[in-house]
Simulated scan of single mutants.
Amino acid sequence: MIGLVSRRTVWIGAVVMAAVCLPLSLASGFLAGLTHIGTVAAAWAYNLKLKSTPVSWVPYAVAFGLLPSFVTLGTADTWAPWWASAATALLGVGAHLANVVPDLADDLATGVRGWPQRLGSLSRLLAPLPLAVATVLLVVAPDGPIGVIGWVTLAVNAVLLVAIVAWKNAPFLVTIAVAAVSILALVARGNALVP
């Protein structure tokens, strides 16, 4: 697969997409647009420099953490509640840890030495921690009772978090399931994101 597309072509595509991203982001509103541009800037920072540093988790936390505010600023002109931003930032950190697990050997061979690569196989064991806190925040922090959906979410995600540790080959897929279950539970609560 290496060599099918030239570096020049990749750079041209990246620059064109970055230029298109600016007006499309701002079409959601000024603050929402700036928030989205912040998430894209975090992704670029990761790819250009931070991927191979001990702070490789920071762009994930920033980009994921800003997403709820992109939605709320674009729809209700208000920042997302702190717990939504904190939970999605933690989902990002957990995803970063889990995503690296299958590629640890390849990453190390190519010189990628981000935080998860430095942790090695501990990444798979640590990934459930931020995901668990994120799930609890998304279930417990919104106003109102936890309800049946909240308790089911906590139970399902507890099983999924154990699977991340036990199932060596697919921690990232299970991480996506944890995030999906948590977000669906939040959506089922209605307008929890908007005060």
Rank of each mutant, 00 (worst) to 15 (best):
L173N: 10
V136C: 01
W167G: 09
A179V: 13
L122P: 02
I176R: 05
F64G: 04
P59E: 00
I146D: 02
T110C: 05
L50E: 12
V194I: 14
A89S: 11
F172V: 07
V187P: 00
G38N: 09
L137E: 06
R189F: 05
P130H: 06
A185D: 14
Y46S: 05
Y46A: 08
A177V: 14
T175E: 01
N191V: 07
L119G: 03
N169H: 12
S121L: 07
L22R: 00
G74S: 02
V16Q: 04
S69D: 02
W44N: 02
A188Y: 13
P195G: 07
S6K: 06
L104K: 13
A89N: 03
I183V: 15
A86I: 11
L161S: 11
D107K: 10
V174D: 06
A105Y: 12
L138Y: 11
T39G: 13
L138S: 05
T53L: 13
L161I: 12
K168G: 03
G38C: 04
F172R: 02
R8V: 15
L184R: 00
A32M: 13
F172N: 03
V139D: 08
P128C: 08
V159L: 14
G190S: 11
V165F: 04
V133H: 06
A185M: 10
P130Y: 04
A105S: 13
S123H: 10
L97I: 06
V148L: 15
N157V: 12
A141Q: 11
V165S: 05
P145M: 09
L119C: 04
L34R: 10
W151I: 12
L184Y: 03
L125P: 02
R118W: 08
A158H: 03
A127F: 01
L73C: 10
G33N: 10
S25T: 08
V181L: 08
G114F: 04
T110Q: 12
G29V: 00
V165W: 02
G65I: 09
G13F: 12
S52P: 07
L108D: 07
F30I: 12
L24Y: 08
L67K: 00
L138I: 12
T72F: 01
A179P: 04
T110W: 00
V112S: 06
S85M: 15
V62W: 02
V15A: 14
A14M: 15
Y46W: 06
T9M: 08
A61P: 07
I12Y: 07
L66N: 07
R124I: 10
W83Q: 13
Y60F: 08
G144V: 10
A18I: 05
P128S: 11
